[in-house]
Design a binder for these strands. Structure first.
Length: 251
DNA sequence: AGCACA
């Protein structure tokens, strides 16, 4: 009888340093040319499919550009996102995704373990090589009252309307009824795409471009309908190694 | 490359 490891390690042997599972994923190799606000909205748009997102953090400082933290409500969502979106071409650069090294403040505040940073920063110490088991993580935190609904006051980020797609700022196509699909595997046929896109209301037709393999146009009746299809199929994998990238077509 | 909490 095989015993499943319940929630513990997946068998992945990471190439780099290993970090344990976290509700927050750390993304780097992001384009640094994108405005922060757009970057965060686009990340939200593409990652909401994996579960509720509590917060998206990104910064412009030298040390932190090209990186973002995405806080999921559940670890399982973070795990799905990490595996499925690994290497996903985002603004023409493949995302590199890891679990964040530490718990996000918003999560710590929710579970009552939040410690203000001014105190944390002074806790740097060197020279101790001895291991000691000091994690009394179950110790009751007497001082901090935990709210019943910490997420209730947070804005429901995952419900923010889709901002306008994952696309380069120099090619800003306004929302319209035609979708531009990129990063399709070589073997994609119009029939495959039709099967996929015809599930959504207003579907009219799919056109592939023979001169340029890997892309397609999908037309809907109006932009509301194309937007729904875009949101549902964003990052859909026709093969395990390629996620499709959907934007609005340029007119 | 780079792990924070605007």
């Amino acid at each position: 009888m095989a015993e499943n490891n319940s929630g513990g390690g997946d068998g992945g042997v990471g190439g780099g340093g290993e970090v344990s599972a976290n509700q927050t994923i750390y993304i780097n190799n992001l384009s640094e040319k994108i405005k922060l606000d757009e970057l965060k909205k686009s990340l939200l748009a593409v990652f909401s499919q994996f579960g509720k997102i509590v917060e998206v953090l990104a910064f412009k400082t030298l040390k932190h550009k090209g990186q973002a933290w995405l806080v999921f409500e559940d670890v399982s969502s973070a795990t799905k996102a990490l595996h499925q979106m690994q290497g996903f071409p985002f603004y023409d650069k493949p995302m590199r995704i890891q679990y964040a090294k530490t718990k996000s403040d918003v999560i710590a505040k929710a579970d009552g373990t939040f410690v203000p940073r001014e105190r944390r920063k002074r806790h740097e110490e060197k020279g101790k090589k001895r291991k000691e088991q000091l994690d009394a993580s179950q110790a009751g935190m007497g001082g901090v009252p935990a709210y019943a609904g910490p997420y209730g006051s947070a804005p429901p980020l995952s419900q923010i309307p889709y901002p306008g797609g994952v696309k380069l700022p120099e090619a800003p196509a306004p929302p319209n009824n035609i979708l531009f699909v990129q990063n399709l595997p070589q073997e994609t046929t119009p029939m495959m795409l039709q099967m996929l896109f015809c599930q959504y209301a207003g579907f009219k037709e799919v056109r592939m471009v023979e001169a340029k393999p890997g892309i397609a146009f999908v037309e809907y009746g109006d932009e509301m309908q194309s937007t729904v299809a875009m949101q549902e199929l964003q990052a859909f994998k026709l093969t395990p190694q390629s996620s499709m990238l959907i934007t609005y077509a340029k007119k």
